[in-house]
């Protein structure tokens, strides 16, 4: 391409670098600060010493977090819920999307309408709550997994993907006597890894980060997902006794609590951080397909 930079363009580039640089820094710095603060001495944080490097390095915060049973229980629950959600959500979405992607599926318009209606109309919080009560799921792990397991929006994304598979593939398989279900399992699914990844990641992220269902349906602390445990520590500043009970003065307690907050932010974000390369790749894809069709 021709590069004919006008004087205005040089100014433009300069301002652009400044803007994007500033914006990126605004995103990055708080994340970075949480990391360095989580290993800094709480006294140094309080006196405003911690800016660019950790000061008075201590792993006391993490030590306390790792010895706290509620966090471990929350962690275990969240992993369990995320795994089951990923399985159920993906299975149900594919079970809806695959038939809908088939042109020879009689009644697909009607089925599609049946699913899509739920994007515009829903019962709302209270009627959903009463339904959950009626089927006796309240205070069980299914209350956190099932109500939001499937979204019609995901069905659209998956259906779009399946529609793009070549029709000849199925015709060839049909001639070889491969029936619908076997075709789906042995031919379609193996080539559908990208869309399965999108569905699994959507479910995992939603389950890992969500707390609404747990908040309204769960009362048994042993079933709390990590996010609700975090809420007590981060938002309500009420770390359970074990976290700070060896600290004497109120002031010191407050400081240790702050240190723990930085630590749990890292601990909570860690799984998604590990998944981040995949998230970036597949979420971007999902958003794009969704935006074209949605």
């Amino acid at each position: 391409m021709l590069t004919r930079r006008t004087k205005g363009d040089i100014w433009f580039d300069l301002i652009n670098y400044l803007f994007l640089g500033g914006f990126t820094l605004m995103i990055l710095y708080p994340l970075y600060f949480v990391v360095i603060a989580s290993i800094s001495s709480p006294d140094r944080i309080f006196s405003g010493d911690v800016w660019f490097w950790p000061r008075g390095i201590t792993f006391d915060g993490y030590r306390r977090i790792f010895h706290e049973p509620t966090i471990w229980i929350g962690y275990r629950n969240s992993i369990l819920y995320a795994a089951i959600s990923a399985f159920i959500s993906t299975a149900l979405v594919i079970a809806a999307a695959y038939p809908l992607s088939r042109k020879d599926f009689y009644g697909r318009g009607g089925f599609m309408f049946f699913f899509l209606v739920t994007l515009f109309f829903n019962g709302g919080i209270i009627p959903t709550y009463l339904m959950m009560k009626d089927i006796h799921l309240i205070d069980s792990m299914w209350a956190v997994i099932l109500p939001s397991a499937v979204d019609a929006f995901l069905i659209i994304i998956a259906k779009t993907f399946f529609q793009e598979l070549p029709e000849e593939l199925r015709e060839a398989a049909a001639i070889d006597g491969c029936r619908n279900l076997r075709y789906l399992f042995s031919i379609v699914l193996p080539v559908s890894k990208p869309i399965i990844a999108v569905l699994v990641l959507f479910a995992v992220v939603r389950q890992w980060n969500g707390f609404f269902d747990a908040l309204i349906y769960l009362s048994d602390g042993d079933k709390y997902p990590l996010q609700l445990v975090l809420r007590n520590i981060l938002i309500q500043s009420q770390p359970s006794g074990n976290l700070v009970n060896d600290v004497d003065t109120l002031l010191a307690k407050q400081r240790v609590t702050e240190l723990i907050k930085f630590g749990v932010i890292i601990v909570a974000a860690l799984p998604l951080l590990v998944l981040y390369p995949f998230l970036q790749r597949y979420f971007v894809k999902g958003v794009m397909v969704g935006s074209v069709k949605g």
Binding site: P99, L100, Y106, M131, L146, N180
Partner: peptide, 28 residues
């Protein structure tokens, strides 16, 4: 294509319970 109907019956049941039942409950 009876297999496809079998397949789609699972999400249909799910939607009936978890999405349409609350809609019916809106009358409260």
């Amino acid at each position: 294509n009876y297999e496809l109907y079998l397949l789609i019956s699972f999400p249909v049941v799910y939607f009936l319970i978890f999405k349409y039942w609350p809609m019916y409950g809106v009358q409260i």
